[in-house]
Design a binder for these strands. Structure first.
Lengths: 185, 185
DNA sequence: AAACTAAAGTTCGATGCTAAACAGTACACA
DNA sequence: TGTGTACTGTTTAGCATCGAACTTTAGTTT
């Protein structure tokens, strides 16, 4: 088992280690700024992975969850056209067509033509789809509460406020371009 | 141009609007927690998009950037095997093979057999690859500094500390499983 | 030595995505 | 009435990825 002289430890560096490396390789960095940005990025990644695992236990893919979420957010009767969905999710209409095929086959949505304008299609959440959404929300809110459990109420407020200010800044600086922005809240 | 009676406003809800909708559709939510989690998620998305745009102006894809970053992080002489890269980036070895093909063709890396163990391959950053990395770092650090410009030094410290605590929490709770975790710091 | 075992990387088939070409419907205007 | 134009959703071709089978090499065992 020759692994002694091998130059490969498969070990991910800690946040502080990573910042130290960046500073060594590129002097002109503010460690405080790097810490915020990299912590943010790592945190989001870990959350996405955790989320993905929870979805898998319910037999859902990330793609399906995104669509469910948008339909619920649209409010009753939980209807939206494929085009609107595609725009909200930042997908091409082509991708949406295929996603609908799969989700309709899985019984999460129905798809029918709009009789008042036969070019349009109406995608509607099924009862089963809505039930899945509720199950995910239960798991997700428990996970999120657990994630923040070490923070006091005041700290949660502070964090929310600081993040909101950053968000406003980036939204002002980098306007939407299209409508293409999605995530897995 | 018939768009008046259309049920589709392509408009993304604000953070507060979104949280209000969630509460309407699913009562059992802590708005403070939702605010933190959703702001985090939105922020990361916006940053990724901004980052992707900057990379594009340098003629780089996100995929290429990830590989450049890992090679530099490995330190001089900026060498790593495809397997180690794949693990760090959370890709299958198969995907790595193709990425290498493209990046070698683009002159960002070289790929040669390890003569001391002819099953292994050594991927090494070219001077051009390193130069690209530096260019990206210059743009990125400017962007990050701009993003945080509204926060005082003290606020930056507080934010970094709070995020770090969240990160520690999630790392303890959701151990790595594999080595598969990457991001675009 | 000869044969197992383990490990690294590549090749192969299938999936989901994008971009671009396409087809069908509704409204405007002559 | 007929033609033009805009808008929707689907189809097609190409690409990146994954999972699994395969090839080559190194070390281990007998």
């Amino acid at each position: 088992m020759p692994e002694q002289p091998s130059p490969d430890r498969g070990h991910e560096p800690t946040l502080d280690e990573q910042i130290a490396i960046y500073q060594r390789e590129y002097g002109d960095l503010d460690p405080q700024v790097e810490k915020v940005v990299n912590a943010l990025s790592r945190l989001d990644r870990r959350m996405s992975v955790a989320y993905g695992r929870q979805l898998a236990t319910l037999g859902l893919t990330q793609a399906e969850w995104e669509v469910l979420k948008e339909l619920v957010m649209a409010g009753r009767p939980y209807r939206l056209g494929p085009g609107a969905l595609a725009k909200r999710l930042g997908l091409t209409p082509a991708a949406m067509t295929h996603r609908m095929d799969r989700m309709a086959a899985a019984g999460l949505i129905t798809r029918e033509r709009d009789e008042s304008n036969r070019v349009r299609v109406i995608v509607e959440l099924t009862d089963e789809g809505r039930e899945k959404w509720l199950q995910v929300m239960r798991m997700a809110s428990a996970f999120e509460e657990d994630l923040l459990q070490d923070l006091s109420n005041e700290e949660r407020g502070t964090l929310g406020e600081l993040l909101t200010r950053l968000l406003r800044r980036v939204e002002d600086t980098q306007p939407d371009a299209d409508g293409r922005l999605s995530d897995l809240d």
